[in-house]
């Protein structure tokens, strides 16, 4: 065991044969970009900093609300009272936990204009986001830069995770060829989510990250892991044969459609109307009946006809059109509107 006193705090982790002092030194010299610091993100950030990852960049666009506290483990009531952004609140907590590593909070909306900059110095990118638009952006950047990333998603009592090493494993677009249309995948706001499944999926993601950062890609999980803690289901889906078998635009043809702006959403602040419009390049065909039933479960006022659906949430009036376009009233802040869209409509 090392005589280096700075490593003492990691002694139990170093006793584990998969890490040891050699691996710990690699972790301390590693850089991770964590995209999203909500439920999955807080669990991952906590584990990464405690494990001694030398540099952890936490990127998140959102503020903390009381309904986050049930599962977003780094936040508390004082953070809400202080109106702190999630990335900043997480960094403050984690610097107290481990002052010997660098935690860099970045309060921003990840989009195609900044994701390269946020990712280019990272050894691994971790997915703590709540929407597929950013996940496909991460996937594009990962393949373009040849950097591994770990996908994770959870909703209700179930979740999924898979690890992507460009060229060695299928990428996200090999496995899920397209993003669910707005309103079709459900969100944690509309379908709810249990903290235990979040912790399990995020912990899987961190374990994968440790394997990658310590230079042991041969040990990674090469399957799509699906877990449902409520129905007691664990599935390991064999996805490795998809590599090269599907004509993937991203990892086979190197077409980075999300990064280049051919896919994704467009947002416009509607001048003088205190409203933001969000539209998608890839038109959806929303099922208003289904959306309304989810939204009503949240106790909101919802009405729709075949042309539009209207509802109110968090003091904002949403007008949603069948192609997924939405006008969100009560704000001119594009980032806030995107947060609201991801929460209540999903994409």
């Amino acid at each position: 065991m090392s005589q280096d006193p700075t490593l003492e705090r990691y002694s139990r982790q170093m006793r584990f044969g998969g890490i040891m002092e050699k691996g710990q030194r690699k972790l301390l010299a590693s850089r991770v970009t964590l995209c999203g610091c909500g439920a999955l993100g807080t669990v991952m950030a906590n584990a990464l900093v405690r494990a001694g990852i030398g540099f952890v960049r936490i990127v998140d666009r959102d503020f903390i609300e009381s309904h986050n506290l049930q599962r977003q483990v780094l936040f508390d009531e004082a953070d809400i009272a202080a109106n702190l952004p999630k990335a900043e609140a997480a960094a403050r907590k984690l610097r107290v936990v481990n002052s010997s590593v660098t935690v860099e909070p970045v309060v921003t909306d990840i989009d195609r204009t900044n994701i390269l900059e946020l990712s280019k110095d990272a050894d691994v990118i971790l997915d703590g986001t709540d929407n597929f638009e950013i996940r496909y952006l991460i996937n594009d950047v990962s393949v373009k830069l040849g950097k591994p990333w770990v996908y994770g998603g959870s909703i209700g009592g179930h979740g999924q995770t898979m690890t992507i090493i460009p060229g060695q494993t299928p990428c996200l677009r090999c496995v899920f060829e397209a993003a669910p249309a707005p309103g079709e995948a459900g969100t944690c706001e509309t379908a709810g989510v249990l903290a235990p499944i979040v912790s399990i999926i995020a912990s899987f993601q961190v374990a994968e990250c440790l394997k990658l950062l310590t230079g042991q890609p041969e040990t990674i999980n090469r399957e799509l892991v699906y877990i449902d803690v409520w129905e007691n289901i664990t599935r390991r889906i064999k996805i490795a044969p998809l590599l090269g078998k599907v004509d993937c635009p991203c990892c086979q043809r190197k077409k980075f459609e999300w990064l280049e702006g051919e896919m994704g959403s467009q947002t416009t602040s509607l001048c003088g109307r205190n409203a933001v419009q969000i539209s998608h390049r890839c038109a959806a065909k929303l099922n208003f009946e289904e959306m309304a039933s989810h939204l009503k479960q949240m106790g909101g006022e919802v009405s729709f006809n075949r042309f539009m659906l209207k509802f109110t949430a968090e003091g904002h009036e949403f007008t949603v059109f069948p192609d997924g376009r939405a006008i969100i009233k009560g704000t001119n802040d594009i980032d806030k509107a995107r947060v609201l869209y991801a929460k209540y409509i999903g994409h």
């Binding site: 999203g36 909500g38 997915d127 703590g128 709540d130 998603g153 979740g159 999924q160 669910p180 995948a185």
Partner: peptide
């Protein structure tokens, strides 16, 4: 036979 859609939440 399992039908598994992508999971978005996080």
């Amino acid at each position: 036979l399992s039908i598994i859609p992508a999971v978005a939440g996080g």
